[in-house]
């Protein structure tokens, strides 16, 4: 079974994140790039499926030059090879354009399954998986907390507010994962060394079949009009518990009419 895992490099949430003043896109120089955390779960799930069913795991990343760091990390977890779509024309693409571009790039690859994270920590749109399934015309098996493949059939547990839905489809399909699905592995020293030799196929937008008239900031379907630092919250009242901390908190809630 051939699996493509979509991996995005995002700014580390632990650092201060900024937007560029000129074009209001993410300032990628302001913070360190890391693999979008949920994508590590996607990689892990793909590796588990490969261990069970055989085949190959390919990483697909679209992003700026620095994203090679995340690709190496993904390869050192055990993925076999990578495709890196890297083109200035893609800068500033919004969620829908990203889904379009990834769908086009997937069109140049052979796969039985696409696995991705259910949300990125920077954009947080949570739409790429669904939009991708729409573009590719493939079954949407998103928000998966459990995945089982049996021959050409696939079954997942889709997380919902009330618990989960059991969803069935035929391969090929698009699967997005939630973080309870597995525990991503740490790369071993041996794998880190091996990863340096694994092939990374760099593609321009044109190589990946992407129409540059449909991507990038100039063709975006949405626009950030302005941005500003959030107004600081007014400083609160902090008391030390001296046996009456609960009572004082109750007084605060009463004052605010919650009790």
């Amino acid at each position: 079974m051939n699996i493509v895992v979509l991996v995005k490099q995002v700014p580390d949430t632990a650092t201060e994140r900024k937007l560029n003043a000129d074009d209001r896109t993410l300032d990628r120089a302001a913070s360190d790039g890391v693999i979008n955390e949920l994508d590590e779960y996607a990689i892990e799930e793909a590796l588990l499926l490969k261990e069970k069913h055989g085949g190959e795991v390919t990483i697909l990343t679209m992003g700026p030059d620095q994203a090679t760091d995340s690709i190496r990390k993904a390869l050192s977890m055990g993925a076999d090879k990578a495709v890196f779509v890297n083109d200035e024309a893609l800068h500033g693409s919004d969620a829908i354009q990203t889904a379009y571009a990834l769908a086009q790039a997937l069109g140049t690859l052979e796969f039985d399954l696409v696995v991705l994270g259910s949300e990125s920590t920077d954009a947080r749109t949570g739409v790429v998986g669904a939009a991708l399934a729409e573009y590719l015309g493939l079954p949407q098996l998103t928000l998966a907390g459990k995945v089982d493949v049996d021959g050409g059939a696939i079954r997942i547990q889709r997380q919902t507010d009330y618990g989960y839905d059991v969803v069935e489809a035929q391969l090929p399909a698009v699967v997005s994962v939630v973080e309870k699905i597995n525990e991503p592995r740490y790369p071993s020293f041996k794998l880190i060394m091996q990863a340096k030799k694994k092939p990374v196929d760099k593609k321009s937008a044109a190589d990946a079949g992407i129409d540059t008239g449909r991507v990038g900031l100039a063709n975006a379907t949405t626009e950030t009009v302005d941005f500003a630092a959030a107004p600081p919250r007014a400083a609160g009242t902090i008391v030390k518990d001296e046996g009456d901390g609960g009572t004082k908190a109750a007084d605060f809630l009463a004052e605010k009419k919650f009790v």
Partner: peptide, 23 residues
């Protein structure tokens, strides 16, 4: 506490039950 409108520095296992009882 940087976000809190009201904060209690203390053990939640004594503060929260007292708050519950008061409410």
């Amino acid at each position: 506490f940087e976000l809190a409108d009201f904060g209690v520095v203390g053990d939640l296992h004594t503060v929260a039950p007292q708050l519950t009882e008061e409410i």
